[in-house]
């Protein structure tokens, strides 16, 4: 059984702009999934559905086979298990310092102060930013903000972590460091789902890939095979990785 799944997911933005069209998707535990496609293909909209930020126009989301509950308590339980990191870290960081910001999620889980503090320290260490704990969030570099935002999500120890363009805007070395950190998270039991435009990175890093175009999935399969297939990639408006 898949950990998280979308069934016939369709979403139309207010104003009638279609974003997702009958998406069927299964996310397997422990399999890194890359979601690729051109700008406006619906990748971010999909992630926002997978943690309950957006509610589908039709279709449903299943968490371990059970349809998700859209009540406040249901959403809360869902988001404990499915974390989300937005593309722009400034959309996520709101507290004065990194430590305070990362503590926000654990406190929302109802953890006590000592346990929340331990979670924050663990997350900051995992992301390699323990030395930035007391730094003001608006004084961080772009890469540091990304790491702080991810720390804020993993401090809640989600089973699935959804990342919207995690390496966008990072230099090559920072991107490599971030991916290595994500691998360590995965080793501790977090399933990774990420959107990206970086086909080469997805080819190296992901186990599986789905290709989006115009709100539809045009292909899916193992990343090592799918992303080198020029014909299939062309259908999604992407360039294949050189074999």
């Amino acid at each position: 059984m898949s950990l998280l799944a979308a069934e016939a997911l369709t979403y139309v933005y207010p104003g009638g702009v279609p974003a997702l069209d009958a998406i069927d998707l299964e996310i397997a535990r422990g399999r890194r999934l890359a979601v690729l496609g051109p700008n406006g293909a619906g990748k971010t909209t999909l992630l926002l559905h997978l943690n309950g930020t957006l509610r589908p126009t039709t279709g449903r989301i299943l968490l371990e086979g059970a349809a998700v509950d859209w009540s406040r308590a249901g959403l809360s339980a869902w988001r404990r298990r499915v974390g989300l990191v937005l593309q722009d870290a400034d959309d996520q960081l709101f507290a004065p310092t990194v430590f305070e910001d990362v503590s926000f999620g654990p406190l929302n889980l109802g953890l006590g102060e000592a346990e929340a503090k331990a979670r924050v320290e663990e997350a900051l260490t995992a992301l390699g930013i323990a030395d930035l704990a007391g730094r003001a969030t608006h004084m961080l570099s772009f890469g540091q903000k990304k790491r702080a935002a991810i720390a804020g999500a993993i401090a809640m120890r989600p089973e699935i972590l959804l990342l919207d363009e995690p390496t966008a805007g990072l230099d090559a070395r920072s991107a490599r460091r971030l991916l290595a950190t994500l691998e360590e998270l995965e080793a501790r039991g977090t399933t990774l789902v990420f959107t990206t435009h970086d086909v080469a990175m997805a080819h190296r890093f992901a186990h599986d890939a789905v290709l989006f175009a115009d709100g539809r999935i045009v292909a899916r399969g193992p990343a090592s095979e799918l992303l080198v297939d020029a014909e299939v990639m062309d259908r999604a408006g992407l360039d294949a990785v050189e074999g």
Partner: peptide, 25 residues
């Protein structure tokens, strides 16, 4: 627009409209 996206980010970390509590040093 940024405020709306911040709300999404907060909701993803379990915020349900109640207090924005954090651990202050």
């Amino acid at each position: 627009d940024r405020a709306r996206r911040l709300e999404t980010g907060l909701a993803a970390r379990g915020w349900n409209g109640a207090s924005l509590a954090v651990l202050t040093p």
